[in-house]
Design a protein around this nucleic acid. Structure first.
Lengths: 120, 120
DNA sequence: TGCAATAGTTTCAAAAAATGAACTATGGAG
DNA sequence: CTCCATAGTTCATTTTTTGAAACTATTGCA
């Protein structure tokens, strides 16, 4: 595997899927088997229905999820990962692994003490 | 590896690193060995210097990069990945792998023809 | 006909993010 | 004491994103 100069350009399209508020956490929920609109909305609370719709439509456009309407009482809709959607799983596994190794050390403070970087 | 219900919450901190415009592509550049401010700025063109500074400062706060000033003529600054920063690499490798498998099928069209999802 | 439940849409305002242009700082060479 | 190159900063403005609130649509049962 090479991540040479040409790589970033080629990976750009995946940024459209993963970048932006809610996208990663939404995909997590889909991997965890949460498929229905209301279900996702509850898990991602306090996401607004508009924003959730926007995100799901984007994933649909990109071929990551399918949208299936189940008529009935009450009617409901399920979002399923496509093959390429499921193919994202190794990315999420790598994130999980990273979190286990380094997540605890993530700094959040405003770092009031030191300012600029070190000088050589 | 398990990605159960509790996982999304625990992975949240990594979203602060990867989410948002420029972050993924910026980290790519750092992996590719581009370290200096101007270098990154050129690669990420047309990013504004302010935005680039903001991103680099965030990564510094999170402990992903260090900032080192090299006095001299002209002076320059290098941004280096920390251990936890380098630890992000498997995530990027997974993205690259995904792109090789599915990137070509990413749809971009407005999908004028069909509208809603299929009905069961 | 009215109601309950799901899954949205619409509208408009608010908040956040990104940008452009111009300016500051540093330090040695000439 | 001016110039060059690097690496920023500052401020005002624009653009994008997000959000809340209220409304629509569908279905079948009572």
């Amino acid at each position: 595997m090479m991540m040479d100069q040409s790589c970033p350009g080629k990976v750009e399209p995946i940024l459209e899927i993963l970048d932006g508020k809610w996208m990663l956490i939404l995909l997590f929920e889909l991997f965890n088997g949460n498929k229905r609109f209301g279900e996702l909305r509850r898990k991602l609370h306090p996401i607004s229905p508009k924003t959730l719709t926007d995100r799901l439509r984007l994933l649909e456009e990109k071929g990551i999820v399918t949208r299936t309407i189940y008529p009935g009482v009450p009617l409901h809709v399920e979002y399923d990962l496509t093959e390429s959607g499921r193919g994202l799983q190794p990315i999420f596994e790598a994130m999980w692994t990273w979190t286990q190794s380094y997540g605890a050390y993530l700094r959040n403070e405003t770092n009031e003490g030191e300012e600029a970087g070190k000088v050589m």
